[in-house]
Design a protein around this nucleic acid. Structure first.
Lengths: 208, 208
DNA sequence: CGTACTTTTGAATCGCATCAAATCTGGTGG
DNA sequence: CCACCAGATTTGATGCGATTCAAAAGTACG
């Protein structure tokens, strides 16, 4: 499927890191429409592509000996398996969990662009560093033992000035917080009743 | 405090990424001995240093309005706050949680080295990418709801061939798995009794 | 040899997952 | 515009598993 310039502009609005993708690489990127249960690649396959999730969900999974599935990452947004850029072969399977659309870049072209284009490279470095910071913060959040603590941690670390506007449904938020949606609703209710939190639709604020 | 060449060799054995640090930058690195509760820097301070934890623990924290402390990262090993490299000022406080020793690099020298030394830069890119992968995997692990699932996920994703040799105490492992040490001991016991796991000191293996 | 820390087990409590079900909401097509 | 459907939101009841507090035994280290 072709990309038009307006497509690219829309995409760039959602994924600021794409702004620095050099034209040569951008022109070699292709859309891929995928369906649930599609397998993009398997462990051991040579790395030929780098993917960005536009819609849907892709999972990085490894299978245990008893056939159980170990999820290494659920990607619903943005680049996935960035580490594969520096690897000859994949260390996990890439499986589509929810149908959607990906953007596929040739791995070699991507590596070349990082080597030769310093603006692109610096953006990529900064993006990776930010990614590490965000995922680390989420890690700390998930190691808190109560639902209320996780909610407050989220608002204090992801919000600004003690407020946040959710960009997703509460069900999805609950999943990000590592709890069931029921637990989230109840904890939100408790925090409201205690006067700790003010909830107004997607806008959630800490009371002073 | 000065660094001798043998110091550096020892350090490099622990932190492979240091191997690619160019000599010019290495010579400007300094050891810093820190004590618990020391504050290395505060939100808003200009970023002048990049730290690597050799021993001890440094926490990145942000303080809520009610004085509660939100932990964004607990660094016990390796570089911390990598994202600050691309930021003028710190976005959190750096506080020593356990006394120990850090290695301090000048931020500007670090950035310059990344700009000019392609070997160093590529190592750094690969390290960040690996970091993202590892922290993401831990994320998925922490969003599992039972102790046993987290243990198995850890072995399947961090181990090789269904086995792993722990490099830390079980108490520390429990903390990494986001549970109390009691919960870890009991879950290990259950998995052993069920025949799922074989435990021999620090060596833990999945049974077939 | 003493001290600090880890490892291990026990008992009680509490919070979350789970299952169930009702209501609400946004989007689709007739 | 309304009927309809899928998914999100919300509340309830129950059971299980993790936390918590407590304490004993083991281990490392100066």
């Amino acid at each position: 499927m072709n990309k038009t310039t307006s497509d690219w502009d829309q995409l760039r609005a959602l994924y600021p890191e794409l702004a620095s993708v050099p034209a040569g690489l951008r022109l070699r990127a292709e859309y891929v429409d995928v369906s649930a249960a599609d397998t993009l690649c398997r462990i051991g396959d040579p790395v030929q592509s780098i993917f960005l999730v536009v819609r849907g969900e892709v999972r990085l999974v490894r299978r245990g000996r008893n056939g159980n599935e170990v999820i290494l990452q659920r990607a619903q947004h943005g680049f996935l398996a960035e580490a594969s850029l520096f690897s000859k072969t994949y260390h996990c399977d890439l499986v589509v969990a929810k149908s959607g659309r990906l953007l596929r870049f040739p791995a070699k072209g991507f590596r070349d662009a990082l080597d030769t284009n310093s603006a692109f490279r610096n953006t990529w470095l900064a993006r990776l560093a930010r990614e590490v910071r965000e995922v680390r913060a989420q890690n700390e959040r998930l190691s808190l033992h109560s639902a209320e603590e996780r909610i407050l941690h989220f608002i204090e670390s992801e919000g600004s000035g003690g407020s946040i506007t959710l960009s997703q449904s509460r069900k999805a938020w609950a999943s990000e917080l590592g709890m069931t949606h029921e637990a989230l609703y109840r904890a939100l209710r408790r925090l409201q009743d205690a006067g700790t939190l003010q909830v107004d639709g997607k806008r959630i604020s800490l009371a002073d």
